[in-house]
C-alpha cells in the first residue's frame, strides 16, 4: 500500500525577534489511507505547526517551509500554489480545531457554514447544499437536525458545536481529517461521545485521521500509530501499543508516567508522581546540534550534548531519536 501522505525532511522556520527558529526540524513520517495517527507532546513542541503546514496555513510572513516535501497523493503541497491549496483545504484535507466556539462564525447559522463548504468545493446549489447540511448533522448525531440546522453557534452546547465542526470537516469526504485537540474544551462524557463518533465516521468514510493531543489515554483509544514530538523534532514514532508498553525515548516514558492514570482498583498507598523536571526549551534553543531534551533527562550523558541524536530503528516498527534508545 502506498502512503496517502508522505512528509520528508520537513523544516519549518518561524521568524521571531531573536532570529529564525526551526519550529519543525527535519521531520519525516507517512500516513496510510484510513489510518489514525496521533501527534503527542507538550505545547510548543510543534504538533499544531505540523498540522498547519499540511493545510498550507502557516502564519504569513512569519512561518515558511524552509526545506523538505509534503507529498499528498503524489503532489508536493509545499510547492503548490495558493489556489491549489485552497482547492484541497476543506475538501481533501480538512481540520477540526480545539475550541469549537471560536472556530465557528458567530453570525452565520450552522447550516449556512456547512453549506458554504459544499458550494465552494462541490458546486452544489444553495438548496442542495442546505439539504446536504441536514444530512451531515444527522450523521454526526445532532438530534432534530432539520430544525437545528438553522441554529447559530451560540444556541448549541459545546459538544454540539464540535459535532457541527466535524460535520463541516467531513462535508466533502476528505481523505485526511486533522483533529487538533478536538476534545480538550469538552467534558469527559462528551469527549467519549466525540471519540465514538470519529471512530464510526472513520469506518464509514475511510478517512485517515491525524489526532493531535496531549492525552495518552486518548491516543491509546483512538490511534494505531503515534509520533511524540519534542522541541520541533520527532522524539519517537511507532505503533501505539508498543510505545506505551515499552517507550524507547525518555521523554515518551516521562509523558506516560507523569500522569495519574485512573485505576479501577486503586491501592490505599499512593506514591509521588514521576516528574519530568523543567519545561520545554524556548525557541532560541531550537535547532541546536544536541539533544534538546537533555536538560530534563534522567539518562543524560556527554553524548547527548555533543550532537543531535540520530534515529534508531527497532524491529517492531518503533523508532526513537535518542542516543540511549537501545538501553531503555
Amino acid at each position: 500500500m502506498s502512503p496517502l501522505l508522505e512528509v520528508k525532511n520537513l523544516r519549518i522556520e518561524l521568524t521571531t525577534r531573536d532570529g529564525v527558529a526551526p519550529v519543525i526540524d527535519d521531520l519525516s513520517f507517512t500516513l496510510n489511507p484510513g489510518e489514525t495517527m496521533s501527534f503527542v507532546g507538550e505545547s510548543g513542541c510543534g504538533k499544531s505547526m505540523t498540522a498547519l503546514a499540511l493545510m498550507g496555513l502557516l502564519p504569513e510572513k512569519v512561518g515558511r517551509v524552509a526545506a523538505g516535501n509534503i507529498i499528498f497523493d503524489g503532489e508536493d503541497l509545499s510547492q503548490a500554489s495558493d489556489e491549489r491549496l485552497r482547492a484541497i483545504r476543506g475538501n481533501e484535507i480538512s481540520m477540526i480545531f480545539q475550541e469549537p466556539m471560536t472556530s465557528l462564525n458567530p453570525v452565520f447559522t450552522i447550516g449556512e457554514q456547512i453549506a458554504e463548504v459544499l458550494r465552494a468545493h462541490q458546486g452544489l446549489s444553495r438548496k442542495a447544499a442546505w439539504a446536504q447540511s441536514i444530512e451531515l448533522l444527522n450523521a454526526v448525531r445532532i438530534p432534530n437536525a432539520k430544525s437545528r440546522v438553522s441554529d447559530y453557534p451560540f444556541q448549541m452546547s459545546g459538544g454540539q458545536r464540535q459535532r457541527a465542526m466535524i460535520a463541516m470537516a467531513l462535508a466533502c469526504q476528505p481523505k485526511i481529517l486533522i483533529a487538533d485537540e478536538p476534545t480538550t474544551a469538552l467534558d469527559v462524557t462528551v469527549q467519549a461521545q466525540i471519540f465514538d463518533l470519529l471512530t464510526d465516521l472513520r469506518k464509514q468514510t475511510g478517512a485517515a485521521i491525524i489526532l493531535i493531543t496531549h492525552d495518552m489515554g486518548a491516543v491509546a483509544e483512538m490511534a494505531e500509530r503515534m509520533i511524540v514530538m519534542y522541541a520541533g523534532r520527532k522524539a519517537e514514532l511507532g505503533p501505539v501499543d508498543q510505545i506505551i508498553e515499552h517507550p524507547r525515548h525518555p521523554y515518551t516514558k516521562g509523558l506516560i508516567e507523569c500522569v495519574p492514570h485512573i485505576q479501577s482498583d486503586p491501592s490505599l498507598e499512593r506514591h509521588d508522581l514521576v516528574e519530568v523536571p523543567g519545561i520545554v526549551p524556548s525557541l532560541r534553543e531550537f535547532g541546536k546540534d544536541q539533544c534538546l531534551f537533555a536538560s530534563r533527562c534522567a539518562y543524560l550523558t556527554e553524548a547527548c550534548l555533543a550532537s543531535r541524536p540520530t534515529e534508531k530503528l527497532f524491529a517492531n516498527g518503533q523508532s526513537a531519536d535518542c542516543w540511549h534508545a537501545e538501553g531503555l
Partner: peptide
C-alpha cells in the same frame, strides 16, 4: 459509572 467509564485509558486490559 458513566463518568468513570468515559475516561480514556492507556491500560489495554482495562479497555
Amino acid at each position: 459509572q458513566a463518568l468513570l467509564s468515559a475516561v480514556p485509558t492507556v491500560d489495554r486490559a482495562k479497555r
